[in-house]
Design a protein around this nucleic acid. Structure first.
Lengths: 191, 191, 191, 191
DNA sequence: AATGAATGAGGATTCATTCAT
DNA sequence: GATGAATGAATCCTCATTCAT
């Protein structure tokens, strides 16, 4: 058993365990001990690596956003043309990565935290900015000046549809969610 | 002075105090004592009336939804024609009642709770159903079959815009929010 | 069992238990739970009444100083003339109240705390001022101008002798301590 | 570069770091990690060298006493005659080595520890014995039989004056402290 | 020699909730 | 109706200490 270079392994294990536990409880009312135990270590070690429960959660949220960004980039790789790219972006937002119960839970709690926690707020605006600039880029090619307005609307709609889908009760449906946003977008760009 | 008839007064004071305290802290991490103190009574009495902290919060949320419903009804009173009514509905969703910081805080925490708490979930679906049927009623007159789809889209958009506005940092702007939803709606109904 | 007016009883019990426990451990490394248990209550109640461990200790120290002040006043009641009064003051400083192991422990830890804790520092200076003015009053009648210098010296000597006696190992001897200070004082006032 | 011979360097660094940290915090509530970091090594190494936190502190205290003893010896080197030597001894007790805040902190905490820790108690009695025999030696030449009593009184007075000076708040004054003890001593030896 | 990794044990503090009055 | 009293249970976080490398 190597005793060196454990840090990234431990951090990653904690991040994953955090997401799992939050999903399991639906809230941030999860003890560091529970998270640590699931990650196979003592709570003391969790604190050693992250300093506080809050930082553990922020790391988890950063991870979720990283995964999401990767999913978007992945979807864009094979997209051809602006419309295809827009569609890919929307699809990725409702991809299997985002629609898992644990991730949804993390998001909802993240919204709560973003009201008061500066780092959370910053992280949230990173997410929003990225999505916005991705949408903007392709919308400009299609609608010119109206791109900004539409990007904002579609961004908000994505969040709203996401919220409703994950709170629906039964498992969220990516296709339904995507269709709803896409239809709106098509009408906006005057298809 | 009779002690009779205090119950509704106490309950109402607690509900308001709860909303205020949640707004102040941004989360449900508010103690019953803090709420009770703000409401001018002991925490024991708060428990006497509501049974548990969770029930206090649910009562607060019910109050918020009641106010919201009233705001919608009020706006509809003077509206003439389906389009005017739709516009009124949207306006009410971003009315001063909803856009107060405390109410926004309550909503975000309510979403978290709705994942796991049956009463919260039911309450949430009451809100969604009401909004949906209000929108549907007027949309049918305008677009017939497409009403359902559009109602869902607009409902989700309202939630998404609300989310983004209240998490923006600076005070949310009702006019901007309303415009965004209304523009989308106009395009949908083929204005 | 009365459920009203418990506060003074509880506070007093906690103060006494604190002194006992500090004496038993020799240091402030005593848990609030140990103190509370000895005082016959839960640690939560101890916090309810005092707010923090530090405040509990400060209350204990205030109690010790109160007892000491009472002992001095008591000794002065029957004293006749300045010399007799000075002797009484010294005697009281090494009275059975001060020389108990627990009280000595509290004092030593109090000195440590007084370096950094404002309230402790203030309390310490209250003790020093009181002793000084008591000594001064009677010394003035005997030596006039030299009273101040002598009061300071005797005050320091009392502290030094106390320190050495309580750290000696075997039980401290009031008579030996008193004699040492008194002899010095006699020489200072020129017999 | 050989790793041999590091031991004394490490130990010394730790001892100094300990004194610094205790001074900085005013108490023994200093973590081994803080000490080790200040000494430029890991806490594990600190344990390797000293075995426990307690032993680190005792080593620090031994160091302080060694310095103090050296200061006394140094002062005695140039002293001529018993009175001059007594004066030198007192001066050294309030020398710059002893009156530093960190050293004072260490002393106060040392007193607390001496109540219960055998090694600390022994160390304290070494200090007291040394001071006593130094004083005794010169007092005998001046007052014969009364030397013992006076030595005890002066010893206690030194401790008492030290205690008050370091707890005074503002920086302690060596000259004032020395004068107080010296004046008392002169009167005792019948100057 | 030296350290990062790891933890067990603990400890102050908080709080929802209950109960006697 | 109303509350001060009271607590059990929890939770975050700390830290001296050990160990594998």
């Amino acid at each position: 058993m190597p005793k060196v270079g454990m840090e990234p392994i431990r951090r990653s294990a904690l991040v994953k365990a955090t997401i799992t536990e939050i999903g399991r409880h639906g809230s941030l009312d999860v003890t560091v001990s529970q998270i640590a135990k699931r990650a196979g270590m003592s709570s003391a070690l969790a604190h050693h690596y992250f300093g506080s429960k809050e930082q553990i959660f922020l790391a988890a949220m950063r991870h979720i956003l990283t995964i999401y960004a990767a999913e978007v980039r992945g979807a864009l790789l094979t997209a051809r043309g602006p419309k295809d790219r827009l569609r890919a972006t929307i699809l990725a937002s409702f991809g299997s990565g985002s629609f898992r119960r644990e991730v949804a839970s993390a998001w909802l709690n993240f919204y709560v935290l973003a009201q008061t926690q500066p780092q959370a707020r910053r992280l949230l605006s990173v997410y929003q900015s990225r999505l916005r600039s991705t949408l903007l880029h392709d919308l400009r090619a299609l609608v010119g000046d109206r791109a900004e307005t539409i990007a904002d609307t579609i961004g908000a709609l994505i969040d709203g549809v996401y919220l409703r889908e994950v709170l629906k009760g039964d498992a969220p449906t990516a296709s339904k969610a995507t269709a709803m946003v896409w239809d709106c977008l098509e009408r906006e760009i005057g298809e």
